[in-house]
Simulated scan of single mutants.
Amino acid sequence: MILTDYFRYPRDLTWEYARQCGIRHGVIRLPENAEFDICNLFHWQKIHRDFCDFGLKPTVVEPLPNALHDHIKAGDSKRDESIEKVLQMLSIMDQLDIRTLCFNFMAYIGWLRTDQKVPQRGGAYTTGFRLNDFTPPESPAITHRALWDNYTYFIKAVLPAAEQYGIRLALHPDDPPVSQLGNVARIMTSFANIQKAMQILPSNFLGVTMCQATYHMMGENLFQVIPALKDKIFFIHFRNASGNKNDFHETFHDNGDLSMAALMKLYADCGIHVPIRVDHVPAMTGDKDLSGYGTTGRLFAIGYLKGILDAHFISYC
């Protein structure tokens, strides 16, 4: 496995914690402000150099910047302009040897939780989702058919460039994996639909982000899904949770529904060697970020992940 962590830019405390935990590779979120031009190689080089100088090699870009992806998913008047920028982005990633792009296809409503203070052991908190507590926001409507059409348009437009530049496109499932949120449809909500997404234009450069707890919330059996997708798993979100797609919450990585040690052994048995990062960590004492991307909680999660890898003699870097 390639151990990574999730980093925003500019540098913050998570960079230091990760290096102190032995992390040497980065999943980077690109700046989303007027000062950063996604088509400007110089802007990318500055960010890349800052990470590398700190001892973190950018390995995955996550997410595909919303300023582009929102138009692509909606299929609106700025879609083609946004896709052109994605193509330039892939060229720059190739020049900087960043080989994986994590993207999703959740239009209008992305990653969603209805509660950010679900009590956990010792006074920690995690996030949770309960469909009965969801209040639909004001947003345009979109149908399942329109989403599939927009996804197909996007994949056909960018996959040839991804193949040309050697960039792996890793599709993240919808989280939560429910088929409808108000008037907004969701499509990446089952293993069958993920397979459909892979088959629209088969390629060695189109695969998945195995967000393991999300697949579990779909009601899928990970011990069947992971072997079936083993050649398509380009990136792993190491995450645990408890419940079902209509009512669930994150947990500490050692006390959710999933057997994390057994899953790591399964990845190894399937010959999967890809970037992996801890995800949706608990907010522990002192953490101000309650979204699952705080600082202290990731220390536990990274240590737990490394302990599992060592216990199973799974190599990592």
Rank of each mutant, 00 (worst) to 15 (best):
F300W: 06
K46N: 06
P63M: 13
R277G: 11
C317E: 13
R99Q: 14
I38P: 06
Y151V: 00
F51K: 04
I98W: 09
P119R: 04
D76Y: 01
S190V: 00
K232A: 06
A283L: 06
G122M: 09
D80R: 11
V281N: 14
L131C: 02
M218H: 07
I38C: 04
P202M: 01
H249P: 07
K230M: 10
G182E: 03
I314W: 10
M210P: 01
D257W: 03
R49V: 07
V158N: 00
Q224F: 10
I98R: 01
L258M: 14
A241I: 04
R79W: 05
F235N: 15
D254E: 13
K85W: 13
Q195C: 14
D94W: 10
H25G: 11
I155H: 03
Y108K: 00
S259D: 15
A185R: 01
A261C: 04
L266A: 00
C21H: 07
G256A: 08
I92L: 11
N66W: 00
G256W: 05
E250R: 03
A261P: 01
P137V: 11
D76P: 03
L305P: 00
P275G: 09
R130D: 11
Q120L: 15
Q45I: 10
T214N: 06
V274M: 12
N104F: 05
H237S: 08
K57S: 14
K245I: 09
Q212I: 15
P136W: 11
R298F: 04
E35V: 12
T126H: 00
R11N: 04
S291E: 08
I308L: 13
G292V: 04
L222N: 13
K288N: 14
S139P: 00
N183G: 10
G182T: 11
R121N: 09
T214M: 01
A141Y: 10
C270P: 02
L96E: 03
S242N: 09
V278G: 06
P202G: 02
R8L: 12
C39P: 00
T114L: 04
G207Q: 05
Q20L: 15
K232P: 10
A268N: 13
